[in-house]
Amino acid sequence: MSSSTAPIERPRISACIITFNEADRIADCLASLHFCDELIVVDSFSSDDTVAIAQAAGARVLQRAFTGFRNQKDFAVGQARHDWVLCLDADERISPALCQAILAARDAGFAGHAGYRFARLSEYFGKFLRHGNAYPDRVMRLFDRRRGGWRGAREIHEAASVDGAVGTLHGDLIHYPYRSLMQQLAKTQRYAQMMAEHEYARGKRATLAKLVLAPAWRFWRGLLLRGGWRDGWHGLVYAYVRANYVRQKTIMLWMLHNGAAVSDPVKPPR
Score class of each variant (00 low, 15 high):
residue 199 E to H: 14
residue 173 L to D: 08
residue 169 L to Q: 03
residue 184 Q to K: 15
residue 179 R to I: 14
residue 162 V to M: 02
residue 172 D to G: 05
residue 173 L to N: 04
residue 171 G to W: 02
residue 198 H to A: 05
residue 206 A to P: 02
residue 177 P to C: 11
residue 155 E to N: 13
residue 189 Q to I: 02
residue 160 A to D: 13
residue 207 T to N: 05
residue 173 L to I: 08
residue 167 G to I: 13
residue 170 H to F: 13
residue 190 R to Q: 08
residue 180 S to Y: 00
residue 205 R to T: 15
residue 184 Q to V: 12
residue 192 A to Q: 00
residue 198 H to P: 09
residue 183 Q to S: 10
residue 174 I to C: 09
residue 188 T to A: 05
residue 195 M to Y: 15
residue 174 I to K: 14
residue 188 T to R: 13
residue 205 R to Y: 12
residue 192 A to W: 01
residue 211 L to E: 04
residue 173 L to E: 06
residue 187 K to W: 08
residue 189 Q to R: 15
residue 202 R to L: 09
residue 181 L to T: 09
residue 199 E to P: 14
residue 175 H to D: 08
residue 177 P to R: 06
residue 207 T to Q: 06
residue 167 G to H: 13
residue 206 A to K: 01
residue 169 L to G: 03
residue 177 P to W: 06
residue 180 S to P: 00
residue 153 A to K: 02
residue 206 A to D: 00
residue 209 A to E: 01
residue 177 P to V: 10
residue 166 V to E: 07
residue 155 E to W: 14
residue 159 A to G: 01
residue 209 A to N: 04
residue 208 L to E: 06
residue 154 R to G: 10
residue 190 R to Y: 07
residue 212 V to P: 14
residue 203 G to K: 04
residue 201 A to R: 00
residue 153 A to P: 03
residue 210 K to R: 12
residue 190 R to M: 05
residue 198 H to R: 06
residue 198 H to W: 07
residue 202 R to C: 05
residue 164 G to S: 13
residue 188 T to S: 12
residue 186 A to C: 06
residue 205 R to H: 15
residue 168 T to K: 03
residue 189 Q to G: 04
residue 205 R to N: 12
residue 166 V to R: 07
residue 197 E to W: 02
residue 205 R to K: 15
residue 168 T to I: 09
residue 184 Q to W: 10
residue 198 H to C: 04
residue 199 E to D: 13
residue 162 V to C: 01
residue 209 A to G: 03
residue 167 G to R: 11
residue 158 E to Q: 00
residue 166 V to W: 04
residue 177 P to D: 12
residue 205 R to V: 13
residue 200 Y to C: 01
residue 168 T to E: 04
residue 172 D to W: 02
residue 208 L to Y: 06
residue 167 G to C: 11
residue 196 A to T: 01
residue 210 K to F: 10
residue 154 R to N: 11
residue 212 V to I: 07
residue 202 R to D: 09
residue 198 H to D: 10
residue 155 E to I: 11
residue 160 A to W: 12
residue 207 T to M: 09
residue 161 S to I: 07
residue 202 R to Q: 14
residue 190 R to A: 07
residue 171 G to F: 08
residue 163 D to W: 05
residue 157 H to Y: 03
residue 183 Q to M: 10
residue 203 G to I: 02
residue 175 H to M: 09
residue 206 A to G: 00
residue 209 A to H: 07
residue 173 L to Y: 04
residue 195 M to R: 15
residue 193 Q to Y: 01
residue 170 H to E: 14
residue 155 E to G: 05
residue 212 V to F: 14
residue 178 Y to W: 14
residue 186 A to W: 10
residue 194 M to E: 10
residue 170 H to W: 09
residue 179 R to M: 14
residue 169 L to M: 07
residue 180 S to K: 02
residue 164 G to Y: 06
residue 160 A to P: 15
residue 177 P to F: 11
residue 188 T to Q: 13
